[in-house]
Amino acid sequence: MSSFSALTTAGYRASVRDRTTVFFTFAFPLLFLVVFGLIFRGKTVEASGRGYIDYIAPGVLSWGVGNAAVFGVAFTLMQWRRDDLLRLIRLTPTPLVSVLASRYVIALVIGAVQTALFLGVALLPVFGLRMAGTWPLAVPVLVCGITAFLAIGLVIGSRADTPEAVAAVANCVMVPMAFLSGSFYPIDAMPSWLQAVSKALPLRYLNDGISQAVSGSASLAGIGIACGGLAVFAAVFGVLALRTFRWSNTS
């Protein structure tokens, strides 16, 4: 078995065996979908005429996928470094790319399961999401989004030395972004200056791309803008992650 396969298998088993991780990865974001979906059931956004569920489902999905990517890799790197596992891995022929690639594959799998679960629930008659035939265009947006948020998680996990620090920093990044990027509140209903601020946030592009694909308003230009914006964030934070990566807390 290659080092990449071994790390991926170990990471997957650790994820599914931890009930707390499973709950906050899948059930906790889904709870937001259920609560907001029931509160705004049958209501529409006056500015666009679209149902609230058309914003809520893609928004909560985007936030859940981004959250899972950030917290998953950040906590893993912090724990592995604190327990000296990264230092031991460094003493083997395992390259850094194998360590990072294993986490990337796990994040993609988790994102795929989250997407199927969230959309499946949102399509139930009680919520009434109407998914257009352009929904496959959400796939490249999701891949780019997971890549961008994984890079953000790498930066956090490389600098934070305790679980409390990871949780504090990651929440400070993800919670405000959720509200400013349209995950819980439609961007169309925000003041114009807040709409401008949201364009500087990666979650805005993930929200926009998935929302367009699911609602049927997607175009190649719109999906390209979403993927391009996420690619820029992935590149910036990816370079920063490589520069800040530490194999141990003493180096």
Rank of each mutant, 00 (worst) to 15 (best):
L77T: 03
L150H: 12
M177R: 10
S251P: 06
I89H: 12
C144K: 03
E164R: 07
F26I: 11
A138L: 10
L108K: 02
L220G: 01
L96D: 06
F184D: 10
L30P: 11
Q79R: 13
L77C: 05
V65T: 15
I89V: 11
L137F: 01
Q195S: 08
F26G: 08
F184E: 13
A218F: 02
A122H: 08
D161W: 04
A14W: 09
A213L: 02
M131C: 04
S192P: 07
C172Q: 11
G228T: 06
F4A: 02
G224T: 03
L129G: 11
L206D: 11
G216E: 07
D161T: 14
R130M: 10
V99E: 00
R13N: 07
L33F: 10
R90E: 09
S2D: 01
I89F: 12
P140L: 04
N249V: 09
R246L: 06
I39T: 02
G49D: 07
G66W: 05
V239T: 05
S5P: 01
A241K: 01
V105R: 04
A151M: 15
V60T: 14
G37P: 13
T25C: 13
D84F: 08
V109H: 02
T94F: 01
F28D: 13
D83G: 11
Q79S: 13
L201Q: 06
